[in-house]
């Protein structure tokens, strides 16, 4: 069966992206795979900040980043739940996935694994100056993905 991959993450969300993915799956008679990526980058940054600048030991720094990841995971479940409700309303087959790690790597892996024909991603809002000097992770996925990639900007 054809699959639409909807990628959500801790970076941001977009109701338009969710609506689009559900509609596209319905129109193409495909199943919707919703992937929530728990980005470890932010939790790692917090760990480094406490460890390198605050000189706080490994245990409290680690507990802190674990507590952040726990919260992100919870938010991921809630977000996937919302997508599931939308998919059920439209009678679209639904499969939730949650992965932790590097965003680009994980998304490319899952595109390959699920054999999705289209991936729907949400990219962060950035000012023009930041856009010029750094590309979003969603752009990087788009550049390397073996399938069509549709981008939405976070709301």
């Amino acid at each position: 069966m054809k699959k639409v991959l909807l990628v959500l993450s801790t970076s941001g969300t977009s109701a338009a992206a969710i609506d689009y993915a559900v509609k596209r799956a319905k129109d193409e008679k495909a199943a919707l795979v919703a992937l929530y990526v728990l980005e470890t980058g932010l939790a790692n940054e917090v760990f480094d900040t406490f460890s390198d600048i605050g000189f706080i030991g490994e245990k409290p720094s680690m507990e802190l980043s674990e507590s952040i990841m726990k919260e992100y995971r919870q938010r991921g479940y809630e977000e996937l739940g919302r997508v599931q409700v939308k998919a059920m309303e439209e009678a679209v087959g639904f499969e939730p996935l949650m992965e932790q790690g590097d965003f680009v790597k994980k998304v490319l892996e899952m595109i390959k694994k699920t054999d999705a024909f289209v991936a729907v991603l949400v990219k962060r809002k950035k000012s023009q100056i930041f856009k010029y000097f750094s590309r979003s992770l969603a752009d990087e996925v788009k550049e390397n993905a073996p399938c069509e990639v549709v981008l939405f900007t976070e709301e």
């Binding site: 605050g54 706080i56 409290p60 507990e63 919260e71």
Partner: peptide
């Protein structure tokens, strides 16, 4: 105690409260 240690200690509590 170090303000960083205080932030690290209180953060999970404040997180739980907000949840």
């Amino acid at each position: 105690m170090s303000e960083h240690a205080v932030a690290a200690m209180l953060f999970p509590i404040v997180f739980d409260i907000s949840k």
